[in-house]
Every structure is written in structure tokens, then in C-alpha cells.
């Protein structure tokens, strides 16, 4: 395995009776990369994360993290890993500082790491407050603080921005990006929020019904995304017929709002505009648009996220 691969899965599967939660996935995450793991609810994201962390045992296949094959009894590698699985949980009767102290003792991090992480996650106002009294967003921050406390080389995060307000989401996104860019931390994060993944990830894996149906870089996404010419026109149905009959442009789609989406022949924008205007139609909009991750994801998985 190449030295720069930090997280690797081969033929990874987890079946619960007839339910194939994860059904034989392969993935490689390289050092310093932010890998976005995208999928609808119940697609197998959290099961995959549990498998990567050894919290559940695979039905088939194997996982390697930082060169160590994950199996029962292999624990030392987790000194270099930070993680968050699903809901952010902590000991409700213990303060933020005490919760982090437990993590520090168990990961072998130095004592100063507690204060540093509290400041990093902006938890200083709540450091001596019991975790059970924190807001949902601050509970999430505490869980992230726990994941970051031991300055991990790899971060495995399941829905890391759950419960955060918009400013918090931006802050955590920037933090994760900075960790990857400046410290070479490898980040594997799952989400069902497309915009989150689109803005942060270098590479995106799309999981659907337990299978990775797409594994693509940001550049790949750009290349594979459908682009179209959007034409706002007074009579979209007639416009589509004109394009077909007079310019040979087929497959133009019109929306109920009277907007025409032209895929093939979209580079002939000037010709199209001239034809529509000379045919007596009012053209109110003419722009080139690219399918975003959300559209791409929906097209791939056949439904809403």
C-alpha cells in the first residue's frame, strides 16, 4: 500500500441478516486529504465509519488506518486518530474540562492540550460547566474538542457540524481545512449536507444502498457535471420546438416556470438568442449554468438527499 494512504478499505461489508448495510466498498484516503463521504440517510455512512474505527466487525473485507489493520485488540493506532460517531455524547455530570481530561488521560495527550483545545473550539466560557447543561451546538463542539485533543494525524468525523449554527459551521469548516492544509491532517467526514461536502472536500465518495457509486475529485465533479444554457423565454414550449426544428437542437427541457434548459448545443447561445427573438419571443434570461453537487447527487441516487 502506498505510504501516503492513511485510510483504506478493501471489500468492506457489513450485513445484518438480509440487510446489506455496507456491501463491499473500496476506498483510499490520502494524507492531508479531506474526503467527503456523502449519502442519504440509511445509505451506510455511519456503518462505514464504525467499521473504520473497529466499533463493529466487518462481515467481509478489511480496513487499514495509518498502516494498522483494524481488528479486535489493535488499539494503539488510535493514539493518532480523532473521531466522532453520530450523536455527540459526553459524561453529563462532568464539566467540559473534566470530559476532556478523561480523553487526555486515555490518549496520552499532554495536560496543556486541554486548554489549547478549549480555546480552539471556543469553549472557554463553558470550560467549568457540566456537559449536560450545554446547548446542542456546544455539545457538538465538546465532541469535536475530544476528537482534536490528541492532535491526531487522521480525523474520522460523522456529521461533524450537526447542531452548529451557521457561523459555527463556517468556523469548523475553516478549522478542518486548515488542519488538512497546514498540518497535513487527513480528514474523513461524512455528511448528508451536500453544500458542506462541496465546500470542504478534496474528494467525494457517494455511498448509496451500501455501495460507493461514485468516488471523484473536485475536478472530476466539474468534468462530469452537466452544463446547460438556461433561457428565460416567454413561451418555453414553443421555443423548444423552434430549436429542434430550425437549429436541430434536441433534448431541451422546459420547466413549468417557463425556463428552457438547453444541454446539447449550449455553445450556440448567440444563434439561439437570435432565433428566439426573430421568432417573436421575449428572451428575459440567458446564462450558462453548471450542475452542482446537489443536482449531481440527486441524479446519481435518484432522489432527494
Amino acid at each position: 500500500m502506498p505510504a501516503d494512504i492513511v485510510i483504506s478499505a478493501r471489500g468492506l461489508a457489513k450485513h445484518y441478516g438480509p440487510v446489506r448495510a455496507v456491501d463491499g466498498i473500496d476506498l483510499d484516503v490520502h494524507r492531508g486529504e479531506v474526503y467527503g463521504f456523502l449519502g442519504r440517510n440509511g445509505s451506510g455512512k455511519t456503518t462505514t465509519i464504525r467499521l473504520l474505527l473497529g466499533l463493529i466487525r466487518p462481515t467481509d473485507g478489511e480496513v487499514t488506518v495509518l498502516g494498522a489493520r483494524i481488528k479486535p485488540g489493535v488499539q494503539s493506532v488510535f493514539a493518532r486518530v480523532g473521531y466522532l460517531v453520530e450523536t455527540a455524547t459526553s459524561y453529563p455530570n462532568l464539566t467540559v474540562r473534566e470530559n476532556l481530561d478523561i480523553q487526555r488521560r486515555l490518549t496520552g495527550a499532554p495536560p496543556r492540550a486541554i486548554d489549547e483545545t478549549i480555546i480552539l473550539l471556543r469553549l472557554d466560557r463553558y470550560a467549568d460547566r457540566r456537559a449536560g447543561q450545554l446547548s446542542l451546538g456546544n455539545k457538538q463542539r465538546l465532541a469535536l474538542a475530544r476528537a482534536l485533543l490528541n492532535q491526531p494525524e487522521a480525523l474520522i468525523l460523522d456529521e461533524p457540524v450537526n447542531g452548529l449554527d451557521p457561523a459555527g459551521i463556517v468556523e469548523i469548516r475553516k478549522l478542518l481545512r486548515r488542519l488538512a492544509d497546514e498540518r497535513g491532517v487527513t480528514v474523513f467526514l461524512s455528511s448528508h449536507i451536500l453544500s458542506e461536502i462541496a465546500q470542504l472536500a478534496d474528494r467525494i465518495g457517494i455511498i448509496h444502498e451500501g455501495l460507493i457509486v461514485e468516488d471523484l475529485s473536485r475536478e472530476d465533479l466539474h468534468e462530469r457535471s452537466r452544463r446547460c444554457l438556461i433561457v428565460g423565454v416567454s413561451d418555453a414550449r414553443r421555443a423548444a420546438a423552434l430549436l429542434d426544428r430550425q437549429l436541430g437542437i434536441t433534448g431541451a427541457e422546459h420547466t413549468p416556470e417557463g425556463v428552457l434548459h438547453v444541454f446539447e448545443g449550449r455553445e450556440r447561445a448567440a444563434e439561439i438568442a437570435r432565433l428566439l427573438v426573430t421568432s417573436g419571443l421575449d428572451v428575459t434570461q440567458l446564462c450558462l449554468a453548471e450542475e452542482d453537487l446537489e443536482d449531481y447527487f440527486m441524479r446519481l441516487t435518484g432522489g432527494a438527499a
Partner: peptide, 15 residues
Amino acid sequence: ADGTAKNLFALPVQR
């Protein structure tokens, strides 16, 4: 019950 067991099981400590 508190959901904290998962926080213990992927640490550099034998379970």
C-alpha cells in the same frame, strides 16, 4: 445508556 461507550472503544487503550 448515555451513549459514551463508543467514545471509549476507539482509543489507544485495550478495552
